[in-house]
Design a protein around this nucleic acid. Structure first.
Lengths: 192, 192
DNA sequence: CGTATTATTGACCACTTTCAAAGTGAGTGG
DNA sequence: CCACTCACTTTGAAAGTGGTCAATAATACG
């Protein structure tokens, strides 16, 4: 792979797999996200477009040369990578310690927040959005089976935490309730 | 926290927690690892020394100024952060998709490899090392309970995959066998 | 329409967790 | 030197969550 890129529109996923086919999503690429890594021509993930996708690509050699000349770019890239690392570590907490229900609630919260930041709706109590993922993709993201995802979606609906119009269109009547279901810690951490 | 540092000797852990106390280790700091992040004075992890530890610290302001003046440092830091991100994503695969036995085998493989790289023993078939973690710390790393960790250690011992002298000293008679138990994919990924 | 893909639901089972008890071993003080 | 203590570890039995297998339903698309 001899280019790096920035997602303009559409959605792609980063996944890793075991020999027997078990797969885990390790990243979700939404518009504005950066793909590829300067200094490496090859890396260990599968990148899959799950929709039609438009990316703004840069050939890697020229990009790296530009990085050499423009220190500011390396610093910006460092910040972005640190953000990704934070996100990955938050996801580790979800994968290692949350229940299936909490996992689903967390994913919905994240998509809702991400959607809200694009549509500039402030911290409204009610939120409406479309899930950009199939049940199987959700399962791969959350470390569950698609059946469990489906069951927990039904359970959240039954309990009034979410409403579904069709399979992908979600309404959250009370965001605070959803965040509570996600089980996240509110106070910040301590060090580093 | 107004410094960044490099671990010289000893071991520390990075953990995240949920409100009810469930905790997940998200990083293990061994000698030569870097701690802290330029551009942030506060972050979301708990850092805990699990042994006596010696770190080489730099006050953050001067360090950041040096980064501004010396582009090479930002680039080096970027590489290190990308490596951490790779490690975090590999860990996501473990947390989301591996069985308890595979998790234990993976952790042992990693510690063995890390130990080997320090002691310069080449890819020997047999390996001997000390676990730097309690069963509880292993559990927090692997997203398991300490009881499950203990049971799987016993199972691996019973099956001849490892030998134990005391609780922490491990002998691996056949590294290939251990790697097989870890269930890792051998071929690299595809893109990025 | 018919077919393929995606999603839901049920029944059963396995693996991991939970709760509980007992075992090990290093360090301390008598 | 030995018994005591405390932290860590092992092991067992029961319970529960999520997984597997299988059948059915909904939706999209030619």
């Amino acid at each position: 792979m001899d280019f790096v890129a920035s997602v303009v529109s559409g959605i792609a996923t980063l996944t890793q797999t075991l020999e027997d086919g078990r797969t885990q999503m390790v990243g979700l690429l939404l518009p504005s996200d950066f793909v590829g890594r300067p200094g490496r021509n090859r890396a260990a993930y599968n990148v899959t477009a799950t929709t039609d996708i438009l990316m703004c690509c840069f050939r890697r050699k020229p990009f790296e040369e530009m990085m050499e000349r423009t220190p500011h770019i390396a610093q910006r890239l460092l910040q972005m990578t640190l953000d990704e690392l934070d996100a990955a570590r938050e996801w580790m907490l979800l994968l290692g310690r949350k229940t299936a229900r909490e996992k689903i609630a967390s994913l919905l919260s994240i998509v809702a927040r991400r959607d809200a930041s694009i549509n500039m709706s402030p911290s409204a109590r009610q939120m409406v959005f479309d899930l950009p993922l199939t049940r199987e993709a959700m399962a791969d993201y959350l470390g569950l089976t698609l059946e469990t995802v489906s069951r927990q979606m039904s359970a959240l609906k039954r309990d009034g935490v979410i409403e579904l119009q069709g399979k992908r269109h979600v309404t959250v009547p009370d965001m605070d309730r959803l965040l509570l279901e996600a089980g996240d810690d509110s106070d910040g951490g301590f060090l580093i």
